[in-house]
């Protein structure tokens, strides 16, 4: 029962898919194929990410993280967030558990949001793809234009939160970090 309740969002979305497959039998095989390949991709990508997360959590001391990426880390903290986010691979949802561990370790909220945004839009593996598909002029210009944009987003998100709000955000993420 507890299990059914915990996964209720899954049952709801699975319900959507079943309805779609019944209404449009022609797309049902592709729907099944796409969903199955999503799960297979997750099974392939997820294990090393979480092993590394657990190791980071026990081996990297909070003081060190706070010194380099915490409240007083300044431009170095921002730069590290960009480098970490941009050197990642994989879809954005892979960044959430990482960001949760960062928050747990005392990384400044602004830097966490910059990290998430850099992961979303500055990822080097994806940039290489963009380079070959859309050409260097487009790809490089977009990458450079996005840089100030993600700094702005990090700054505004942090500024918009009251002290209590950022604290409860940090608590929420910490609870999920494992």
């Amino acid at each position: 029962m507890e299990f059914l309740k915990r996964y209720r969002l899954l049952w709801i979305f699975a319900g959507f898919s079943v309805v779609a497959a019944v209404l449009r039998p022609d797309i049902a095989p592709r729907l099944w194929q796409n969903t199955a390949s999503n799960f297979l991709e997750m099974l392939a990508v997820i294990p090393p990410i979480f092993v590394l997360l657990g190791l980071l959590d026990v081996w990297v001391p909070k003081d060190t993280v706070m010194k380099w990426m915490g409240d007083t880390s300044g431009i170095i903290g921002v730069a590290l967030s960009i480098v970490l986010g941009a050197s990642s691979a994989g879809p954005l949802y892979g960044a959430f558990p990482f960001a949760a561990v960062m928050l747990k370790k005392g990384v400044r909220l602004r830097n966490v949001v910059v990290f998430l945004s850099a992961w979303a839009t500055l990822k080097v593996p994806m940039f290489l793809f963009e380079l070959s598909a859309l050409g260097p002029r487009f790809a490089v210009t977009r990458w450079l234009l996005n840089l100030p944009v993600i700094l702005l987003i990090g700054w505004v998100v942090e500024r918009s939160m009251t002290a209590e709000q950022s604290e409860s955000l940090r608590d929420q993420a910490t609870a999920l970090a494992g």
Partner: peptide, 12 residues
Amino acid sequence: PEFTAILVLVGL
């Protein structure tokens, strides 16, 4: 829980 739900939704 949310993750598996999203994989299903993305499939759709």
